[in-house]
Computed example of a mutant assay.
Amino acid sequence: MQQTWRLFDRLASSYDEVVPFFASFGRSIVSALDPPPGCRFLDLGAGRGALTDPALARGCRVTAVDAAPGMTERLAAAYPSATVLTFSLGFSDELPLPAASFDLVAAAFVVHVLDDPAAAVASAHRVLAPGGRFAMTGGGHPSSGFVSGLDDLFATFTPHLPPGGSMGALLPPAALLAGFDDVHEVIVTSEVHIPDNDVLWRWVMSHGYRAFVEDLPPGPRASFEDHVRELPLGDGMLRRSSSLWIGTKPSG
């Protein structure tokens, strides 16, 4: 987790600034969860506020937690009505929050990069009130347009990574959510416009994809950049879909 949060700390000033990709996902996620006003909402791995912003707009009482100080400094400045915490040890440790103190815990695009996803989900379960909900993203869906070509590039260059390179791993949502009732999946989407290949490259380097690029040896790294800069963009719409897994903490 140390290496992961340090990467995102470096990216804090540009994260979701090139194009509002995660903000678009955040609106879709909060819309799917539909929290009521006054909901005690915990945003785990809050980043620059993709979930915090729409949750506050719905009248939720938001606590936003991130491991990267650069993220939380900007969160606190942008959202003074939220409670912002820097938890730099990683979410595999116990969250420094009271038990049964939240109605909804959401973790968007974070659980898969943690050292111990199961421990993180267990910690979320502890801080949820009985009947509260936990939501996490997990698993993408087939892409179309130029995004499909971008995915193909990542697959092509993956063999150049050193052992343990890049970050994140495939998650088993059903196993992770075994302690919850009514576990179900909904599909959330993000759609933003990429005007040209320079913006596409800057976007690739402004979030977690950067770990992939930086872990490539110099030759393949330069070739990967060249391919991204030459990728046909079609209508320029970056469209992605993701699974959002939701479970309810038993009331008994």
Results as ranks from 00 to 15, higher is better:
45 G>L: 09
115 D>R: 15
72 T>D: 00
90 G>E: 10
40 R>N: 07
68 A>E: 03
57 A>D: 13
38 G>L: 12
99 A>N: 13
117 P>F: 09
72 T>V: 07
38 G>I: 12
89 L>K: 15
101 S>F: 02
87 F>G: 07
61 R>A: 02
119 A>E: 11
69 P>F: 09
113 V>E: 00
81 S>M: 12
92 S>A: 15
45 G>S: 09
82 A>R: 00
43 D>T: 13
106 A>N: 05
78 A>M: 07
118 A>D: 13
47 G>Y: 03
63 T>V: 15
82 A>V: 00
58 R>Q: 11
78 A>D: 11
55 A>M: 07
110 V>F: 01
51 L>K: 06
74 R>S: 06
78 A>I: 07
49 G>D: 02
102 F>D: 02
41 F>A: 04
42 L>F: 11
49 G>Q: 05
37 P>M: 06
82 A>K: 00
119 A>L: 11
71 M>R: 10
109 F>G: 01
67 A>D: 10
76 A>C: 10
73 E>W: 03
57 A>E: 13
69 P>S: 14
83 T>E: 14
81 S>G: 13
64 A>V: 03
108 A>W: 06
94 E>Y: 03
40 R>L: 04
58 R>N: 05
104 L>F: 12
55 A>Q: 05
53 D>M: 08
104 L>R: 12
107 A>I: 02
117 P>D: 07
92 S>T: 07
35 P>Y: 02
102 F>I: 05
75 L>G: 03
78 A>K: 14
55 A>W: 03
77 A>W: 03
61 R>P: 01
112 H>I: 08
82 A>Q: 00
80 P>S: 02
57 A>V: 08
46 A>V: 09
48 R>E: 02
92 S>N: 10
104 L>Q: 14
58 R>D: 04
85 L>W: 07
42 L>M: 13
65 V>I: 10
74 R>Q: 12
95 L>N: 05
50 A>Q: 12
77 A>E: 14
42 L>A: 15
36 P>E: 04
53 D>H: 04
115 D>W: 01
56 L>F: 01
100 A>H: 13
94 E>C: 09
51 L>F: 00
38 G>P: 12
106 A>E: 05
38 G>H: 14
98 P>G: 08
85 L>A: 08
101 S>T: 05
109 F>K: 01
72 T>K: 03
78 A>F: 02
37 P>C: 05
99 A>D: 15
83 T>C: 13
104 L>C: 14
66 D>L: 02
39 C>F: 11
90 G>R: 09
103 D>M: 02
118 A>E: 11
57 A>W: 04
50 A>N: 06
107 A>L: 06
53 D>E: 15
55 A>V: 04
71 M>I: 06
65 V>L: 14
50 A>E: 05
114 L>S: 15
72 T>I: 00
119 A>D: 05
43 D>P: 14
57 A>H: 12
49 G>T: 06
49 G>N: 08
112 H>R: 13
45 G>D: 11
